[in-house]
Design a protein around this nucleic acid. Sequence first.
DNA 1: AACCTACCCAACCGCAGCTAG
DNA 2: ACTAGCTGCGGTTGGGTAGGT
Length: 237
Amino acid sequence: MEGSSGVRKGTWSQIEDDLLKACVQLYGEGNWHLVPKRAGLNRCRKSCRLRWLNYLKPNIKRGDFSEDEIDMMIRLHKLLGNRWSLIAGRLPGRTSNDVKNYWNTYARRKLHSHKKDNNIEKQARAKTTVKPHEVIKPVPRALTKTSPRLQGKFINSSEVGVSHEEGATSISGSGNWWETFLDDKEDIEEGNNNKCFFGGEDGALDLWGEELNSIACDFLTQGETWSDFLLDLGLGD
DNA sequence: AACCTACCCAACCGCAGCTAG
DNA sequence: ACTAGCTGCGGTTGGGTAGGT
């Protein structure tokens, strides 16, 4: 199976996998444009990268998603939208492709189950006008060598009400935000459904400081700070 | 057994952002 | 400032397969 450019496409063979593995182990990750040549593979750089990231990379977790992972995925998707790489970054061993595939299946299942009681919902919605919930989509950012963050100029935590005690990040006013996070009802009743956590309507980061704090608190991994979380999401500067 | 349908997952494609020249 | 090349991401497709009729 070869493309018009003579590059092989389709399923990877065991030999190709071995060649790619050996190449990455020898030269390290990156420089994907050199990988096909180095590995002696008749594959395009994208195909090599994808194969490595989604299948060959060590520590990749295969098999069913656990309940915890699903729970985390749902909440992160609610928070970030279709930012699969960011979501996968919070699920150790899972790839963005895994997450995306799972989510598409999950969404389809949801769709099917919703169709069943669609008529009931339509009747209910006819009585109340409901605005769709706005997915929070942080503006994509990338770090450059000249980024203030890489020069030690971190966000002032006082701006978002975060206190640091003995190296740990303590966030006030959190509470179990997830108990209501998946429930649009409250937002609608409060009239908040069109507001955005990050940046808000007027672009002020601290407008939703408390919500940010409680959300981030739940997604911080061990030893990670609030700044790390924002940096990870590309919201830090 | 044969066919159909839905599902799962690996892989491809196109685009946007970044960097170096 | 501009451009070309590279990388990474999200959307989409296609092949394999399990389950139902």
